[in-house]
Amino acid sequence: MSSTASTGWVIALTPPEWRRWLLTDTPQSRWQARAGRAYLGWAAFARNPLAMLGLLIVLVLIGMAIFAPLITSYSPVVSGDTVADRFLPPGGDHWLGTDGHSWDIWSRIVYGSRTSLLIIFMVAITAAPVGIIIGTTAGYLGGWIDTALMRLTDTFLALPKLVLALAFAAALGAGMENLILAIAITSWPPYARIARAETLTVRNTDYIAAAQMSGASSLRILIGHIMPMCLPSLIVRVTLDMAGIILTAAGLGFLGLGVPLPQPEWGSMVADGRSDILNQWWVCTYPGIAIFIVSLGFNLMGDGLRDVLDPREQ
């Protein structure tokens, strides 16, 4: 066999039409260029089986939340017969059993995924933007703005997550909003730090100098040039943090400071069953397994994303 391509590259297979369109060296539009780039990222992600497993877990979680009424036959909050349906072991109609309130555990786990996703989503869309804005602004502008913003960050970083949430719950009452607020307030400082560190490496590059020379305002440089460079490491960090957020929410639920009953939440479900763990093991085991699987899923997905988005880690 002799070499084929003069560059020395040998492509093993002739790609199908759509793939050729995505991977072309000469995209015809902004949209095609972006799609091609996204496809390359996806291809790299898809090569990692563990990352795909993580993605699958997250997708199943989202599917559970969306289609909850379709995959459960009992209401998560309306209890069955308080005597006959109490502490039913797994099997039969209640295939994960029932708890002390005669609630169907499978239903509560399925509906509980909505609670978990809502908390993750709310924290991600509040803490991440705050972190990136504060971090990039501090890093790019420097001087006293940097000092002020980073001391603020340090202050918030010093707040203990659980204690703050406890204080919130004590002052404002237990509830989902306060839980989200408490987690969000303690989650953004690490994002600000990451964004600032990233900004400091980008700030003195020639492409930023070129943008300054073309007359771009600081705001334009921050949003259009610096933030896109900070996003990948931030996305990775947020994804990895999601497991932590679920665990914090579950921990608070376990302490009785999370989402109040009867709304289903995995942490409070574990707490609920803890006194009966020897006799009715299924009550706290199944929500515990759910927490474990979903945390693992986000971690696996985050590691996969890091390999794709943050090549320095490779």
Binding site: S3, G8, W9, V10, I11, A12, R47
Partner: peptide, 10 residues
């Protein structure tokens, strides 16, 4: 690599 073999020294 995933995209093929690069024969850099011949």
């Amino acid at each position: 690599s995933a995209s093929g073999t690069n024969h850099v020294v011949r």
